[in-house]
């Protein structure tokens, strides 16, 4: 403790002030001067370490100033080697802790500061959001010139959260056994998984097909495309008419899909590329709506049943007049989707 600190202190006012500090030092740091005197003892040939050293040092204080200055460095190293090892280790550990803490803090701060990077994508007015929501249902038949896509994330994010809420609502009003925890997590996972997953997938396809679109634009396009899903599901979860759902599915879901397809077509060159890109997007988007409407609860319950065994009584569902073929197809798609999820 006292060794390195005072040694450094002694090294400070080296020139003239060391003379007046010399006596003070002798009293204070016994260990330190002992090491110094090991050196000096060779000339004096004394027997005892410290007493002889101290006497010797008092005798020739004036001459020793320079010697001490030279020895201070050695003393530093030697002293640390012998006695200050523990202190040095402690200091090293503390230093490491401090470094790690600083890194963590700066990482958290960077994360929080990264909000500023995202801020341009949230730079919208309420009117703009409303207009974009409306436009997401209006396909424009202009494929010769690239259509404009707003690179904005506020609307998509809010639509995804709305979809999560609507899904929860649907699960509760249907005859599903309420397991809110599981359902909540599944709803969030499904919506965000679809939005991010399909966007990345289509972006990858677009990269392969040489379409001019960025990731943010893709996220925005698909996110606004979810508006149709939100409207459809909100209505059909509350009004249980089957024909109504099909009308909504083809009408509203189809319109929002057409809009996205039109945008992608206008930004892609070549028939094959257009077909691949738009076919993938349209199929995924329309099937996702079907999946959410019909098979969502079933998947969740199926998972729960397999997890919890036969203790749970078979759950009562409202009979729906799904055609046998479509329900079979849906079940398989649902299962594959569940496996994929």
């Amino acid at each position: 403790m006292s060794g390195p600190g005072t040694a450094a202190g002694a090294g400070g006012p080296r020139g003239g002030a060391a003379a007046e500090w010399g006596a003070f030092e002798d009293n204070m740091q016994g260990g330190g001067s002992a090491v110094i005197d090991m050196e000096n003892m060779d000339d004096t040939s004394g027997s005892s370490f410290e007493d002889m050293g101290e006497m010797h040092q008092r005798m020739k204080e004036e001459e020793e100033v320079d010697a001490e200055a030279a020895a201070a460095d050695e003393e530093d190293g030697e002293f640390l080697g012998m006695k200050g090892f523990k202190g040095q280790l402690g200091r090293q550990v503390a230093d490491q802790m401090w470094q790690a803490g600083k890194r963590q803090a700066s990482k958290a701060f960077n994360l929080y500061a990264n909000i500023d990077i995202l801020r341009p994508y949230f730079d919208v007015e309420p009117m703009q959001v409303r207009n974009r929501l409306l436009e997401s249902m209006i396909p424009m038949k202009m494929i010769n010139f690239p259509q404009k896509i707003a690179g904005e994330l506020y609307g998509p994010l809010m639509l995804v959260f709305t979809l999560v809420a609507i899904l929860l609502h649907g699960m509760k009003t249907s005859d599903t056994i309420i397991r809110e925890g599981t359902l909540m997590g599944t709803a969030i996972g499904t919506c965000f998984g679809y939005w991010l997953g399909v966007s990345s997938f289509i972006y990858f396809l677009a990269y392969l097909c040489n379409a001019q679109i960025t990731m943010v634009q893709m996220l925005s396009l698909l996110g606004y495309g979810l508006f149709g899903h939100c409207v459809t599901l909100f209505v059909t979860y509350n009004i249980h008419f089957h024909s109504l759902f099909y009308i909504f599915w083809l009408g509203i879901g189809g319109l929002s899909t057409l809009r996205m397809v039109a945008v992608l077509v206008s930004r892609t060159v070549g028939y094959t590329q257009r077909l691949i890109l738009c076919g993938a997007l349209a199929a995924l988007h329309m099937l996702f709506l079907l999946y959410l409407h019909f098979a969502y609860h079933k998947v969740v319950e199926g998972i729960l049943d397999t997890l919890e065994g036969p203790n749970i009584p078979p759950f009562q569902r409202v009979a729906r007049d799904i055609p046998a073929i479509s329900s079979a197809v849906l079940n398989t798609t649902a299962k594959t989707a569940a496996l994929a999820l």
Binding site: Y154, G181, M184
Partner: peptide, 30 residues
């Protein structure tokens, strides 16, 4: 009995997660 845990945890998580999302959103909007 086996459903007690998730219920509590989910309400808890919904409230805090939702509040954090709203806060981040308001920060992002300036």
């Amino acid at each position: 009995t086996e459903d007690k845990g998730p219920q509590f945890a989910e309400v808890f998580v919904i409230i805090w997660f939702g509040a954090v999302v709203i806060t981040l959103n308001s920060k992002l909007l300036g």
